[in-house]
Amino acid sequence: MNAWEPKIIAFLCNWCSYGAADLAGVSRLQYPVNIRIIRVPCSGRINPKFILGALRHGADGVWVSGCHPGDCHYIEGNYYARRKFALLKSLLEHTGIEPGRLHFSWISSAEASKFAETAREVVEAVRAVGPARHFIKTKPTWDDIEAPVQAACQVEVG
C-alpha cells in the first residue's frame, strides 16, 4: 500500500499568488490538495529560515510564489527575493537537498490557471523525489552519551 502523499508548504505573496489561489478556488479549478498555504505580505518577506523551518518540520517540498518581476506591490520586493532564492536553492541543493523539493514561481492574481497548473507541477515533482528523508528535526532520542558514541565508534574502531 502506498498511502504516502507529499506535504508541501506554499508561501504565497498576499498581492499576487495568494489572489491567484483565491481565484483558482472561486473559478473551481482543480488542483491537488497537497499544498498548505501560508500567506506572506511579499515574496521579499521570505526569510531563508522559513524555508529551512518548513523542511525541518518534515515538509516534503516548499513552494514560494510571488508577483511577476515589475509587478511587486512594494515595487522591488521580489527583485531582492529573486537573488536570495537563487542562492538559497543552490546552497541547499549543493548540500544534498534533492532538486525537486524547492520550487519558485511568479503568478499574478489573474493567473488562476497558472496557479493550478503550477500546483500540479510542484506536487508531481515532489512526488517524484519521494518522502523527505533529510533535514528533519526530530525529538532528541539519544538519552545517554553511550548511544551516539557507540555508533560513532563502530565506524572509527571497527
Binding site: 518581476p69 531582492y80 529573486r82 537573488r83 537563487a86 536553492k89 520550487h103 514561481s105 511568479w106 507541477e121
Partner: peptide, 16 residues
C-alpha cells in the same frame, strides 16, 4: 553588496 541590490534581468531560470 549583491543581496542588497538587484538587476531587472537577473537570472531566473529556476522560477516557474
Amino acid at each position: 553588496p549583491p543581496l542588497d541590490t538587484y538587476r531587472p534581468d537577473d537570472p531566473q531560470d529556476f522560477i516557474k
